[in-house]
Design a protein around this nucleic acid. Structure first.
Lengths: 181, 181
DNA sequence: GAGTGTGAGTTTGATTCCCCAACTGACATG
DNA sequence: CATGTCAGTTGGGGAATCAAACTCACACTC
């Protein structure tokens, strides 16, 4: 039984090379070692997602990003630097003398598009009165759903369960026995 | 040609009633009026996503959430209150005298599960060395992909384009003509 | 060649937020 | 009566944030 949809390619551009972002270790993260905490450490600061939104929309210059997000300029400069250090954005010099840089998505940055789409979808439905952004898929409106590529079935939350893979932790928290020694 | 997958139900539990969250208006948002900005205003503060992660994992009590996230207790109290005000969490009194509350997901909160899954998937791939969390789908590992429910096709970013629906704005920013008047 | 504009920041000073640790209050347990 | 639990709240110091002005290097205009 073949999967009806192909598994999404992940890190193909990277071909087994080290992570583009300064990969975070468990001890860099507060509380439970977990991909959510690691992701928040990289893109969870204020203005980061809005800056990324603008780059996804095709705005690559500092002034455009500042105007469209409303972020203070110093904060935006700091965030762009952090996103660059995380391997999510790259700076390209489009003018020497004076040096001028534009910001572009790396493979890791482009890989954030499912996160962005999920946020757009949720926000349109639950956070504002009227949708302010939408996606076209070919020539029709995108109706986003999740599917398991292994079995091809549309995802329902009740068919899924979480597995905690961090050593010393389970779903309820740190495991007491032999946790500290 | 029928869609091979059913469209995801959104706000069915809510049946056309007002938004559970204090729905945000354009002027509440910095910069471009957009679902990303609205979502960030509700769940973008520090510790919010980690608190939600714990509730998704089944930890509903203040002390458990505090321990597993590592959040300062005062910040956590503030975030839980904000998420409650946003209609994402609800407090349930599980003990009177002394009054003790546990935190549970509302329909809007449960609807964040695609966002959470997208973040887990990205984080496992790009932010940490080794996956620390995974999902089981039935009895196999979940391999998450996006599909357009309208046409049934697996999503590729190059097949999609963004539409800006906010009046006075396009992808590049605010529209100059007749913008202010 | 003086003045104005553009672009990407940096600096400044006031404000706000965040972290940590200790404390509170109402009970349960020994 | 002392200790423990639970869900917070309070206080003080430090860090981050904000808005606005400023810098620097050039380009364009008159």
């Amino acid at each position: 039984m073949k999967p009806p949809v192909a598994p999404t390619d992940r890190r193909l551009d990277n071909g087994g090379a080290p992570l583009p972002s300064a990969a975070l270790a468990d001890h860099d993260l507060p509380g439970r070692p977990c991909p959510v905490a690691a992701t928040m450490a990289l893109i969870g600061e204020k203005w980061s997602m809005l800056a990324l939104r603008e780059v996804f929309l095709g705005n690559h210059r500092f002034n455009d990003i500042a105007r469209n997000t409303g972020a203070p300029r110093d904060r935006l400069a700091a965030r762009l630097r952090a996103l660059e250090a995380a391997g999510i954005l790259e700076r390209r010099e489009y003018s020497t003398a004076p040096a001028r840089y534009s910001y572009h998505l790396t493979p890791a940055g482009k890989a954030l598009s499912p996160v962005m789409r999920a946020i757009v979808t949720w926000g349109n439905t639950w956070a504002i009165e009227t949708p302010r952004m939408g996606y076209l898929h070919h020539d029709h409106e995108l109706e986003l759903t999740e599917v398991c590529a292994t079995c091809g079935e549309q995802l329902r939350s009740r068919d899924t369960s979480v597995r905690v893979l961090a050593p010393g932790w389970d779903t309820t928290g740190p495991i007491e026995s032999a946790a500290t020694g």
